[in-house]
Amino acid sequence: METDIAVKASKLSRHFGTFTAVDEISFEVKKGEIFGFLGANGAGKTTAIKMLCGLIKPTSGEAYVAGYNINTDSSMVKKHIGYMSQKFSLYEDLTVKENIEFYGGIYGLSRKEIFEKTKKLLSELHLEKMRDSLTKALPLGWKQRLALSTALLHDPSIIFLDEPTGGVDPISRKNFWRIIYEIANQGKTVFVTTHYMDEAEYCNRLSVMFKGKIIEIGTPTELKNKYNKPSIQDVFIELVTRN
């Protein structure tokens, strides 16, 4: 079915024992949108994103990602999404080229495809010279860009980024957001969690999470107007003190 909705969650919850990490969240993300999940540490952003990626099963509720039900069709979901965690999951003892080949391989790309993608990727990232060096030798900002590129190898329509810029310097963060815009311009949906307020301003639409619930959702401008604040940071503080 052809719709313009990339992600749709309804009353999605996850409990860990008696603790409710995510509490009946519902939202929709349109195709090609940069959708942000803003919240403090422990607000449930990572749990929410892991449910959407099929890494954790929801306790109740359901969600559709790329048109597939995450509860019943998680293998189809996995084919259409890319995921990058806050840890930049690359193998440090593998070279740049070997990392790309491995991730291409587990997504079932053919040898030829991998060869071409590797070449293209390395030139895009200006990493040709580093091709045969171990990944651990790369600076953090480059590792992060490489991780993002490997998450995009299989050309997913939706990409989930879980705190992608944690621990990275401001300039690298800016560069990274430039790449996120490029991805969105290609028609891909970007789903990003963050606790940096300045990054929240870059999103097309934003949802604010607090104690497992979505307490506000809208474009950054809408939110600022609604609460009559000059920045998202002020909106966030206002929301958190109210709740």
């Binding site: 099929g54 890494l55 996995k78 965690s85 840890k87 440090e92 587990i106």
Partner: peptide, 14 residues
């Protein structure tokens, strides 16, 4: 520990 298993598990690998 390194988080790479998570990265494999989000792929369609069985």
């Amino acid at each position: 520990e390194t988080g790479t298993l998570e990265q494999i598990l989000v792929s369609p690998v069985h």
